[in-house]
Protein backbone atom coordinates (compact mmCIF):
# COMPACT_ATOMS: atom_id res chain seq x y z
CA UNK A 1 0.00 0.00 0.00
CA UNK A 2 1.51 3.36 -0.98
CA UNK A 3 1.76 6.48 1.17
CA UNK A 4 -1.40 8.22 -0.01
CA UNK A 5 -3.54 5.12 0.08
CA UNK A 6 -2.40 4.34 3.62
CA UNK A 7 -3.19 7.94 4.61
CA UNK A 8 -6.70 7.63 3.14
CA UNK A 9 -7.45 4.34 4.87
CA UNK A 10 -6.35 5.68 8.25
CA UNK A 11 -8.22 8.99 7.74
CA UNK A 12 -11.38 7.16 6.61
CA UNK A 13 -11.22 4.81 9.59
CA UNK A 14 -10.65 7.78 11.90
CA UNK A 15 -13.69 9.64 10.54
CA UNK A 16 -15.88 6.55 10.84
CA UNK A 17 -14.79 5.61 14.38
CA UNK A 18 -14.92 9.18 15.66
CA UNK A 19 -18.36 9.79 14.13
CA UNK A 20 -19.80 6.64 15.70
CA UNK A 21 -18.02 7.23 19.01
CA UNK A 22 -19.56 10.69 19.35
CA UNK A 23 -23.05 9.57 18.28
CA UNK A 24 -23.25 6.50 20.49
CA UNK A 25 -21.00 7.36 23.45
CA UNK A 26 -20.17 11.05 23.81
CA UNK A 27 -23.59 12.52 22.93
CA UNK A 28 -25.51 10.31 25.41
CA UNK A 29 -23.11 11.11 28.24
CA UNK A 30 -22.01 14.64 27.25
CA UNK A 31 -25.19 16.40 26.02
CA UNK A 32 -27.93 17.29 28.49
CA UNK A 33 -31.35 16.91 26.86
CA UNK A 34 -34.06 19.15 28.37
CA UNK A 35 -37.47 17.54 28.80
CA UNK A 36 -39.41 20.37 27.15
CA UNK A 37 -38.03 20.15 23.60
CA UNK A 38 -40.84 21.25 21.28
CA UNK A 39 -39.57 19.88 17.99
CA UNK A 40 -36.95 17.17 17.58
CA UNK A 41 -34.67 19.29 15.32
CA UNK A 42 -34.37 21.86 18.11
CA UNK A 43 -32.91 19.36 20.58
CA UNK A 44 -29.32 20.18 21.68
CA UNK A 45 -28.11 16.81 20.41
CA UNK A 46 -29.76 17.07 16.98
CA UNK A 47 -27.10 19.17 15.28
CA UNK A 48 -24.03 17.27 16.64
CA UNK A 49 -25.77 14.01 15.69
CA UNK A 50 -26.30 15.11 12.07
CA UNK A 51 -22.68 16.24 11.76
CA UNK A 52 -21.33 13.00 13.22
CA UNK A 53 -23.49 10.85 10.98
CA UNK A 54 -22.15 12.86 8.04
CA UNK A 55 -18.59 12.31 9.34
CA UNK A 56 -19.16 8.55 9.62
CA UNK A 57 -20.66 8.41 6.12
CA UNK A 58 -17.62 10.29 4.76
CA UNK A 59 -15.37 7.79 6.54
CA UNK A 60 -17.23 4.86 4.96
CA UNK A 61 -17.00 6.53 1.53
CA UNK A 62 -13.24 6.99 1.95
CA UNK A 63 -12.77 3.38 3.01
CA UNK A 64 -14.84 2.08 0.08
CA UNK A 65 -12.86 4.26 -2.30
CA UNK A 66 -9.58 2.97 -0.85
CA UNK A 67 -10.69 -0.66 -1.19
CA UNK A 68 -11.66 -0.01 -4.81
CA UNK A 69 -8.29 1.64 -5.44
CA UNK A 70 -6.43 -1.28 -3.89
CA UNK A 71 -8.42 -3.80 -5.94
CA UNK A 72 -7.92 -1.96 -9.20
CA UNK A 73 -4.25 -1.26 -8.49
CA UNK A 74 -4.70 2.50 -8.79
CA UNK A 75 -3.31 5.10 -6.46
CA UNK A 76 -2.94 8.81 -6.85
CA UNK A 77 0.49 9.81 -5.64
CA UNK A 78 3.40 9.71 -3.25
CA UNK A 79 4.34 11.71 -0.14
CA UNK A 80 4.85 15.43 -0.76
CA UNK A 81 8.40 16.71 -0.31
CA UNK A 82 7.61 18.72 2.81
CA UNK A 83 5.73 15.89 4.57
CA UNK A 84 7.09 14.86 8.00
CA UNK A 85 9.46 11.89 7.73
CA UNK A 86 8.26 8.75 9.52
CA UNK A 87 11.63 8.08 11.14
CA UNK A 88 11.87 11.69 12.41
CA UNK A 89 8.39 11.93 13.93
CA UNK A 90 9.83 11.11 17.36
CA UNK A 91 11.48 14.55 17.21
CA UNK A 92 8.04 16.19 16.90
CA UNK A 93 6.99 14.01 19.85
CA UNK A 94 9.85 15.45 21.92
CA UNK A 95 8.75 19.00 21.05
CA UNK A 96 5.13 18.17 21.97
CA UNK A 97 6.27 16.67 25.30
CA UNK A 98 8.36 19.78 25.91
CA UNK A 99 5.27 21.87 25.17
CA UNK A 100 3.24 20.08 27.84
CA UNK A 101 6.14 20.37 30.30
CA UNK A 102 6.19 24.09 29.54
CA UNK A 103 2.44 24.27 30.20
CA UNK A 104 2.93 22.54 33.56
CA UNK A 105 5.54 25.03 34.81
CA UNK A 106 4.31 28.23 33.13
CA UNK A 107 2.63 29.67 36.21
CA UNK A 108 5.23 28.46 38.71
CA UNK A 109 8.33 29.56 36.87
CA UNK A 110 6.61 32.40 35.06
CA UNK A 111 6.34 32.94 31.31
CA UNK A 112 9.73 34.63 30.90
CA UNK A 113 11.89 32.05 32.63
CA UNK A 114 9.95 29.01 31.39
CA UNK A 115 9.91 30.10 27.75
CA UNK A 116 13.58 31.18 27.92
CA UNK A 117 14.56 27.66 29.03
CA UNK A 118 12.38 26.11 26.34
CA UNK A 119 13.92 28.38 23.72
CA UNK A 120 17.44 27.24 24.65
CA UNK A 121 16.41 23.57 24.56
CA UNK A 122 14.55 23.90 21.26
CA UNK A 123 17.35 25.78 19.53
CA UNK A 124 19.91 23.23 20.68
CA UNK A 125 17.56 20.42 19.64
CA UNK A 126 17.18 22.00 16.21
CA UNK A 127 20.94 22.02 15.75
CA UNK A 128 21.93 25.59 16.64
CA UNK A 129 25.24 25.55 18.51
CA UNK A 130 26.32 29.19 18.63
CA UNK A 131 25.87 30.39 22.21
CA UNK A 132 26.31 34.00 21.11
CA UNK A 133 23.05 33.55 19.16
CA UNK A 134 21.17 31.22 21.54
CA UNK A 135 21.56 33.24 24.74
CA UNK A 136 20.52 36.68 23.45
CA UNK A 137 17.52 35.17 21.61
CA UNK A 138 16.46 33.12 24.67
CA UNK A 139 16.68 36.15 26.92
CA UNK A 140 15.50 38.83 24.53
CA UNK A 141 12.39 37.28 22.95
CA UNK A 142 10.54 36.34 26.19
CA UNK A 143 11.43 39.67 27.80
CA UNK A 144 10.30 41.65 24.78
CA UNK A 145 7.00 39.74 24.61
CA UNK A 146 6.46 40.05 28.36
CA UNK A 147 6.96 43.80 28.38
CA UNK A 148 4.86 44.27 25.25
CA UNK A 149 1.86 42.48 26.74
CA UNK A 150 2.25 43.90 30.27
CA UNK A 151 3.24 47.49 29.50
CA UNK A 152 1.90 48.24 26.02
CA UNK A 153 -1.20 46.03 25.97
CA UNK A 154 -1.93 46.03 29.74
CA UNK A 155 -2.42 42.26 29.73
CA UNK A 156 -1.10 40.66 32.94
CA UNK A 157 1.35 37.83 32.26
CA UNK A 158 2.41 35.60 35.19
CA UNK A 159 5.99 36.41 36.16
CA UNK A 160 6.37 33.41 38.52
CA UNK A 161 9.57 33.30 40.53
CA UNK A 162 10.88 36.36 38.66
CA UNK A 163 8.01 38.50 39.92
CA UNK A 164 10.18 40.52 42.27
CA UNK A 165 12.59 41.26 39.42
CA UNK A 166 10.09 41.96 36.65
CA UNK A 167 7.26 43.56 38.59
CA UNK A 168 9.16 44.89 41.60
CA UNK A 169 8.32 44.61 45.25
Amino acid sequence: MNYLLRQNVIAGGFYLILGLLIVFVLIPIGVDEPSNVQYAPLAPSYWPRIICFALAVLGIAMLIRSVMQIRSGWASGEAPEDAPEARLIWRAGVVIALGFALYAVLETLGFVLATAIVLVVLMLFAGERRLQIILPVAAGVPLALYFFFVKAASIPIPAGILESVLVGG
Binding site: V95, L102, E107, V118, L122, A126, G127, E128, V137, I157
Partner: peptide, 22 residues
Protein backbone atom coordinates in the same frame (compact mmCIF):
# COMPACT_ATOMS: atom_id res chain seq x y z
CA UNK B 1 16.38 26.48 13.70
CA UNK B 2 16.15 29.88 15.42
CA UNK B 3 12.89 31.00 13.87
CA UNK B 4 10.66 28.06 14.79
CA UNK B 5 11.53 27.95 18.53
CA UNK B 6 10.69 31.67 18.62
CA UNK B 7 7.37 30.94 16.85
CA UNK B 8 6.48 28.40 19.56
CA UNK B 9 7.12 30.95 22.30
CA UNK B 10 5.03 33.54 20.42
CA UNK B 11 2.21 30.99 20.27
CA UNK B 12 2.32 30.45 24.04
CA UNK B 13 2.14 34.17 24.84
CA UNK B 14 -0.58 34.71 22.20
CA UNK B 15 -2.80 31.87 23.38
CA UNK B 16 -2.58 33.02 26.99
CA UNK B 17 -3.21 36.70 26.27
CA UNK B 18 -6.75 36.38 24.90
CA UNK B 19 -8.41 35.42 28.22
CA UNK B 20 -5.49 35.39 30.67
CA UNK B 21 -6.09 31.72 31.27
CA UNK B 22 -3.54 28.94 31.19
Amino acid sequence: RILFPVVLVLCVFGAYAINNTI
